[in-house]
Nucleic acid binder design. Structure first.
Lengths: 212, 212
DNA sequence: CCGTAATGGATAGTGGAAGTATCCAAAAAG
DNA sequence: CTTTTTGGATACTTCCACTATCCATTACGG
């Protein structure tokens, strides 16, 4: 197909597709003449993936390009760590603006200890967590250990659902892509479901009989 | 205090504080002369709140202003629905770019039914959820009912932790602000904890003995 | 007391991100 | 055989979140 059909079928304007081609988010089509190229179903799939990650996942274009490059790279992730590897592909959850104090890092290490989490305390994710903990504190709403444990336990459950869902995907080369999709869109999904669950729980506690 | 100290104590550059004053995110200080004004601890608190919501919560300036305006407004939220009300103050979780089909809305209604959620299917949050469900589908990774239920159950648990934490806050006028902080920063916290829990769960399933 | 620095407030400018618009000669379509 | 579309390059636009500059005052340090 040519770019017009790609645009039609994906709902993306032609100039935007050209922009993604320039930026390397979408591979060029196969050249068939001086001003002709042909795109396949793979291009359409990739384009839909880009829109999902950027529009709903909220990823910047530059981050999306890096993630896709790693998803495409044929270097062999050891099967045994394929899923753990997929996590490395993911974008950082924070912008790294606030800086955490030793106090916050200590609380993060203690949390890992309590939950038996197998995570290197120097990892990027651990630093992100300390940053978020520090932000709660500075905003005047510190998180106590009970709350932190409660949220951690909740996310353990979410992670089990994630891995179950990803585990259902067959095809080694599809696993990495699906891990990215489920993880990135998962953040947005969690946020939306959490708002709904909050509203419901709030009504429930206010004494509104469910199903009323 | 004057603007220099406010800047010092909050870690925010003076020009940025002036920008927030212009944009109405921070109330003006009390005028004490033609070019002098004095700020109090309340201003410092508000400034830290703004930085928490924008830097770590990722909210745009305009959204932050609207939220703060509602937090400030003294119109009486009925105690019985104060927490549910707080949810209305919150920003939408999606940008409303993708459009869901009837199929997606149907799945959302069915989910509400299965979980006994007390939510109006025409609400903004329900539309957001349908949009996210549609995005998974278009990205070629549809969510089945089992996964959706699993995530919903997880977020019910998160919401219970949220309401427990918010419930510990005393002082009626503080509750709305804390509900906003916990909800907004909670999204980021969930995302970070989920990455960590995913990595741990992934290692666990790969046969790495925990605590090894 | 006096020179330097900081202040409140207004107005203008910057830099990055994500597209849009325009142009072109060469196909393609009706 | 005229009109539209195409691939590709280059230039332009819009929005956002700040920064910089300016100015007539205070405030501060020696």
């Amino acid at each position: 197909m040519r770019i017009g059909e790609l645009s039609e079928r994906s709902g993306t304007p032609v100039p935007t597709i050209k922009y993604y081609l320039r930026e390397g988010l979408l591979p060029r089509g196969e050249r068939t003449g001086p001003n002709q190229a042909s795109y396949g179903e793979g291009h359409l799939h990739r384009l839909r993936l880009v829109r999902a990650l950027t529009d709903v996942g909220g990823l910047p274009i530059a981050t999306t390009r890096e993630i896709l490059a790693r998803v495409d790279s044929p270097d062999p992730p050891i099967t045994h760590e394929l899923l753990g590897h997929a996590m490395h592909v993911l974008p950082p959850a924070t912008k790294g603006v606030a800086t955490a104090e030793e106090e916050d890092h200590g609380r993060v290490r203690a949390l890992f200890e309590r939950r038996g989490w197998h995570v290197h305390p120097q990892s990027r994710a651990a630093a992100d967590l300390a940053e978020v903990v520090a932000t709660y504190r500075r905003a005047g709403r510190p998180l106590d250990d009970e709350a932190l444990d409660g949220y951690a336990a909740t996310m353990e459950q979410a992670a089990r659902v994630d891995l179950d869902v990803i585990g259902r995907v067959t095809g080694t080369d599809e696993i990495l892509e699906s891990a990215v999709v489920y993880s990135v869109l998962g953040d947005t999904l969690m946020a939306v479901l959490r708002r709904l669950a909050q509203a419901d729980e709030s009504a429930r506690r206010a004494g509104v009989v469910p199903g009323d």
